[in-house]
């Protein structure tokens, strides 16, 4: 596992994402829902809203976003609460809340299985669920996790950047970075159109050199394009399933 060209335990290269699957509209009582799976990691998100909010919790200027994170089993602990806060802040950055004063938007996250990169998977699922609910956002989110694995040979320094790590890879890593990127629209430039990405959320665990972080950021940008392309394909399919009656 130490030479550059070798593969990871599940046969992927270091820069390879796992296969993604996105199902939409699964929950008949939610306004929007999506189940996002990255191979063994699977998260179901239900979105309720914009809807009525009890007067003491409403905000006269914009909609209030609430996130509930339910682990696969057992009750919520500090990790789940932290995840709720990170997810809420991420979504608040893209949801156009001022369009719905006094309303509430509830995002319910149910972890179905965790095989690494859980937070990323949840962010991707939440974005898909919000789109499914027809809630306006400034752009699509794509989230990727990178694990910095220790090199086996002490000499040579630096760490391997493993994209979309499994639970095993994540637990054995020296550090992990989870990034959520928003794709900004194609801006016409003199060279033709270019799509940019903006960092919405960055969460790291463990220590890493700054160069390593920047490299991880770069890999994540590349990966986010793949995720976005997949999300768009999945969205297009889902849209066409909905009947479009003439006005």
């Amino acid at each position: 596992m130490s030479s550059q060209g070798s593969l990871r335990k599940d046969g992927r290269t270091f820069n390879q994402l796992r296969g993604m699957v996105c199902d939409r509209g699964l929950l008949h009582r939610a306004d929007g829902s999506a189940k996002w799976s990255q191979d063994g990691t699977s998260v179901l998100v239900g979105v309720y809203g914009p809807k009525n909010m009890p007067p003491k919790r409403e905000d006269p200027e914009k909609a209030v976003l609430e996130v509930l994170w339910k682990p696969k089993s057992g009750i919520q602990g500090p990790e789940e609460r932290e995840a709720e806060i990170i997810l809420r802040r991420t979504l608040e950055a893209v949801v156009l809340a001022p369009l719905f004063p006094r309303a509430g938007i509830s995002v319910v996250v149910q972890v179905i299985h965790d095989d690494g990169s859980l937070l990323s998977c949840a962010i991707n699922a939440a974005c898909a669920a919000l789109v499914d609910a027809g809630i306006p956002m400034t752009g699509l989110l794509a989230s990727v996790t990178i694990a910095l694995a220790k090199r086996d040979d002490g000499a040579g320094g630096g760490a391997h950047l493993q994209l979309d790590p499994t639970r095993e890879e994540q637990d054995g890593a020296q550090a992990t970075v989870c990034l959520a990127l928003e794709t900004t629209p194609k801006a016409a430039t003199s060279n033709g159109s270019v799509e940019g990405e903006a960092v919405v959320t960055s969460t790291t665990r463990g220590a890493m050199a700054i160069e390593e972080y920047l490299e991880a950021l770069d890999r994540c940008r590349m990966a986010s394009r793949t995720i976005n392309a997949f999300a768009r394909l999945s969205l297009d399919k889902a849209q066409r399933r909905l009947e479009l009656p003439g006005t």
Binding site: G134, P185, L244
Partner: peptide, 30 residues
């Protein structure tokens, strides 16, 4: 608006144009 003279969709849906008004109608939703 996204930058100058650039209009961006904030939902997935059908583009509707009525005279100068351009909007995107999301299918699902309340």
């Amino acid at each position: 608006m996204a930058g100058e003279a650039q209009l961006q969709a904030t939902v997935c849906g059908l583009v509707e144009r009525v005279n100068k008004l351009v909007s995107v109608r999301a299918l699902k939703g309340r």
